[in-house]
């Protein structure tokens, strides 16, 4: 396939279409507006449906309906809009419906600003909506990975009947890079046992999260969800290591932060400091075991995030007290600089 220069938000759209997504419901919000615009232009041409909903709340519930009806379906938004979708994400999780939700994070809390940020890690990874549930959370670090992970997101969603969140940020969504569009995975998921299509020649199907009777019905549903989450934790962790094996100091970051960390590792190596990078690609499930192995014997870990310290909690839980963990964060849509990361790590070496 040819290399094309594509904007992150548009690459998600094209990759979703490659993955067989024919239904998109959304509501405008910066910095992800190119994605609904792209879908409104492309979906009618491939026999799909684009619908601009009256709100993010309505959009996620349209997603729920379309998913219950058996379709591959997506919505996208940015932080304040994703907060509104949390109700629907909880319902989708309880009813075990597959869906892909894109969050191009911006500065918060509240209306915040429109610069890229990573302040929604807790919301995406730890819950956000009510009840005991998880979404698979993918954290791409550039346009190629946005496209590749979008295709994968639809497969994961269907395989596990789960919500998959693509957690990008405003910079990655707005950024253009040369990419090779991914091929369809070719995987087919049979939804005939549960989807709603009209009870032709079978008993009616019901899609619901509510379990009132018998008394332990909800406990059983939750236990099944937890079993599923344990399987996903074992099977689906993704991460990337670079120059980590011989490193004395390990940087840990996701998304755009990880790319700034990689530049920092190069600068540190040039200055004679042996630094390396560990980049979680799945934020849930978090690659704890792999991080603990990568961190073994290191002098220090520095976690870099565009927030006040969120993923750092999972890093600490992964390595416990075996390696000291430091944190460098930037707030309100400010990006960390290579200089400050290098300076921080050099201070450990001194």
């Amino acid at each position: 396939m040819a290399v094309t220069l594509m904007k992150g938000n548009e690459a998600i759209g094209e990759a979703a279409i490659i993955a067989g997504c024919r239904h998109y419901f959304g509501y405008p919000i910066t910095p992800q507006n190119e994605l609904p615009a792209y879908m409104s232009m492309r979906l009618p041409k491939v026999g799909g449906t684009f619908l601009q909903a009256e709100s993010e709340v309505a959009a996620i519930n349209m997603v729920l309906g379309a998913s219950a009806a058996g379709a591959r379906v997506m919505t996208s938004s940015s932080s304040p809009g994703v907060s509104l979708k949390m109700e629907g994400i909880s319902y989708l999780s309880g009813a075990e419906l597959p869906a892909v939700v894109v969050n191009m994070m911006r500065g918060g809390p509240g209306l915040g600003n429109i610069a890229g940020a990573q302040g929604d890690y807790f919301q995406a990874v730890k819950g956000g909506g009510h009840g005991d549930y998880h979404c698979i959370v993918l954290a791409p670090n550039g346009v190629q990975e946005l496209a590749d992970l979008t295709v994968k997101a639809f497969d994961l969603a269907d395989q596990y009947r789960i919500v998959v969140i693509i957690l990008g940020d405003g910079f990655i969504g707005q950024m253009s890079e040369p990419i090779t569009l991914p091929a369809p995975s070719g995987r087919v998921f049979d939804k005939s046992a549960w989807m709603l299509s009209g009870a032709t020649g079978r008993d009616p199907h019901v899609i619901a999260s509510m379990r009132l009777a018998p008394d332990d019905a909800l406990a059983h549903l939750n236990a099944r969800l937890q079993d599923k989450y344990r399987v996903i934790e074992k099977a689906e962790c993704m991460w990337e290591k670079s120059q980590a094996d011989d490193a004395e100091f390990l940087l840990v970051g996701f998304g755009l932060s990880a790319r700034i960390c990689r530049s920092s590792v190069s600068a540190l190596r040039k200055a004679g400091v042996r630094a390396g990078l560990f980049r979680p690609i799945t934020l849930w499930p978090f690659p704890s075991g792999e991080l603990a192995r990568a961190a073994a014997g290191k002098k220090k870990i520095l976690v870099v995030e565009m927030n006040a310290g969120q993923m750092v909690e999972d890093v600490r839980l992964s390595v416990l007290s075996s390696v000291p963990v430091d944190f460098l964060g930037t707030l309100g849509g400010v990006t960390p600089s290579v200089d400050e990361i290098v300076e921080r790590v050099r201070s450990y070496a001194r």
């Binding site: 290399v3 220069l5 910095p31 429109i114 550039g142 910079f171 040369p178």
Partner: peptide, 20 residues
């Protein structure tokens, strides 16, 4: 610039300012 440099085999990236 990106398209031209890309065509000549370079790696490129482009981040615009956006929004209001």
């Amino acid at each position: 610039v990106c398209l031209a440099a890309m065509g000549e085999g370079k790696h490129v990236s482009h981040i615009p300012s956006y929004g209001a």
